[in-house]
Each structure stands twice: as C-alpha cells, then as structure tokens.
Design a protein around this nucleic acid. Structure first.
Lengths: 172, 172
DNA sequence: GGAGAGTACTTAGGTGGCGAACTATTCGTC
DNA sequence: GACGAATAGTTCGCCACCTAAGTACTCTCC
C-alpha cells in the first residue's frame, strides 16, 4: 500500500522522541483518526453549504433531531450535548429561529423553561444536508469490504467504550 | 460487549431513514470515529491547560514542530496546514510571540516573507504538553492488543488514503 | 408560607477567527 | 528594463462563542 500522511509523519518523528515513549503504531493510529475526522468535517461542511446553512446551524439542527425526543429539546440540554455554553446556545437558537428552522415555545409546566422545536422547513433542510453527507460517508466507508467494516467497527467500539468511561470518570 | 453511544444512536435512528439509504454499520463507524476524535481533542485540551497554553497556541506550536523543517516555517504554510486563514495566523503568531514561544525573522532572500521559528521556551512547553497527551493516547490505544492495533491501522490507512485522494481532487 | 438555595435562560463584555481590502515585494513577459 | 499580475503578510470590520453577571422563576424546609 502507498504511504499516507501518517506514515510520513511517523517516519519523520521517530527520531525526535528519544526521551519520551513514542510508539509508531499508536501515533499513526491517532494521526489517522484525527485526519479522517477532519475529512468528515470538511465533507459535512460542503454538504451544509449546498443547502444554505451555516455550520453551527446545521450542527444544532442535527443534534436537535438525533435526540431520543427528535426535533424537540430544551436549550440547556442541547447546549450540553453540543459542548457549547448556554449563552452560545441562545445565539444559535436566535439565528435558527430568525431563519424559520426552529421555534421557541414557553413551557407551560415550568415558566423558566423554553422548548426548542424544529419546524417543518428546518427538518426538510436538515434532511437534505444529511442525504448529501451520507453519500460522502458511504463513498469513504465503501473502501472497506463488509467484513473489514465489521472488524473496524468492533475495534472502534472497544475504544469508544473506553473513551465514554474515561469521560464519565473525569466528569465525576 | 456493552452498548456504546453509537449503538444507541443507530437503534434510535434506523426508523427515521426509510426514504434515504441508511447503513447501520457505516453510520456506527462514522459516529464512533467522530466520538473518538472528540475524546482525543478533550484529552489534548486538558494536557495543554496543564502547561499553561491556550488551545490555539499549542496547536500552532505543534504544527510548527511536526513539519519536515521542524520549528521553522512561513506563516502562510502554517496557516494552510492548520486550516486557518492567513489573517487568523497573524493573530496566533502575535500571541505566541508575545508569550515568547516563537519569534519572527524577516527572510533575507525574499523581503515579503517572514520566518516563524520556535524558541527554546516554546519547544520545552510543547514537549511537556506532548508527553501528557501521549500518555492519554497510549491509555486509549492500549485497549487493543498489538494484533488488533495493527489491523486497526491497516483499515484506517485504507480510509486515510481515500480521504487524502478525495481532498486533493476537490482542491483541483 | 416565606426565605434562601437552586435552576433555566438571557444579556453584557471581551476574544479568536474569517473574508476582504491594503501594503510591500517579486515574477513574467513584451 | 518596465508595467501588470501574482504572492506574502498585515490591518479592518464583523461574527460566533465564552465567562460572568443578571432576571425570572421553582424547590426545599424550617
């Protein structure tokens, strides 16, 4: 197989870490993982632009839709799951509301609360972006055979479980 | 194996994509990949804070160090490889220069150019952050056996090669 | 049942980053 | 060898996001 970015990176850097434990395989895996994420981010951005959304608008709409209560959430919960501050969330919702992709409804049971709900227009534009994005993901992942993809997922899951655990520990 | 975030995500969403091709394995792999990247980003941020750097300062210093001409680059090249605008780069270098981690030297051959060079202090602080970050990466990747890690890398590389190619095509 | 702690969201003020215009220099070509 | 195009970097105005403070409620418990 040809050299990729990570191979070149590791070859260049093996010598610079005489004093710190530097593991070629681990470094290469990390670099590739981050590289792939960047690629997916770029692809998503392209899809999002095509349907006329800002990145942050799509991201917010997306998180709103993939909840267990799809299309409906409190600003706080949304902010939390997006890793954005509550103040930042207010701004995002303002923008989405102005564009008509989302609407605020005051809660009736608790007057401090607000419900954010995706409008029909919001759902439509989100699904358009998702479809475009999905195509690019399929194109990428199709480089693996079904068997390889299954293996890949099994290994990713082992790592993901650890990451979830570690993140939960840290939050404690 | 226990359920992870991606399993729950896919289970929840299988029903919502009756009209668009939705592949469980591909979706799970994508979600896990992005999740892991987030984890690595968070871990890096923690390491960076410990040595008293801002995220963007570390990132810049890091990119400066992992070039083929380590510790030395033009602002333009740096901006390009960081995916940051030239204007943004000016700001980052200003900040790093003020902190004494980097210094600007006008080029002698081409008077439009400037060289950015890491100072001794900059290299030291970067290496401290790297060491901390490396520990976390090893902890994560150690969840895989050596054999699994090799397989993981082989699959990642297939995807990475495609991503590089696709990105190059798009730039054309 | 009312004071104080806690919660949900918004407003205010400051910062990094972006696109576009600007400055200074070099290259290409006639 | 001189003029226009290209290139490197910086400055400027704007925008999203952050932290901290503010507003408006609800909950706890004496």
């Amino acid at each position: 197989m040809a050299e990729d970015f990570a191979d070149r990176h590791v070859a260049r850097w093996r010598d610079h870490w005489i004093d710190i434990d530097f593991d070629d395989e681990i470094e290469a895996a990390t670099v590739r993982l981050m590289h792939l994420d960047r690629y997916l981010t770029r692809v998503t951005r392209a899809a999002v632009r095509q349907v006329g959304l800002q990145d942050y608008e799509y991201e917010t709409l997306h998180r709103l839709m993939i909840r267990d209560t799809p299309g409906r959430a409190s600003p706080g919960a949304l902010a939390e799951s997006l890793g954005v501050s509550a103040a930042g969330m207010t701004g995002r919702i303002d923008s989405l509301e102005r564009a008509g992709h989302v609407k605020r409804t005051p809660s009736e049971t608790d007057r401090r609360r607000v419900d954010v709900e995706a409008t029909q227009a919001g759902v439509t534009v989100w699904r358009q972006a998702m479809a475009l994005r999905g195509e690019a993901e399929v194109a990428l992942m199709s480089r693996l055979t079904r068997g390889e993809l299954a293996t890949f997922n099994r290994l990713l899951k082992k790592l993901a479980l650890y990451a979830e655990e570690a993140a939960a520990d840290q939050a404690r």
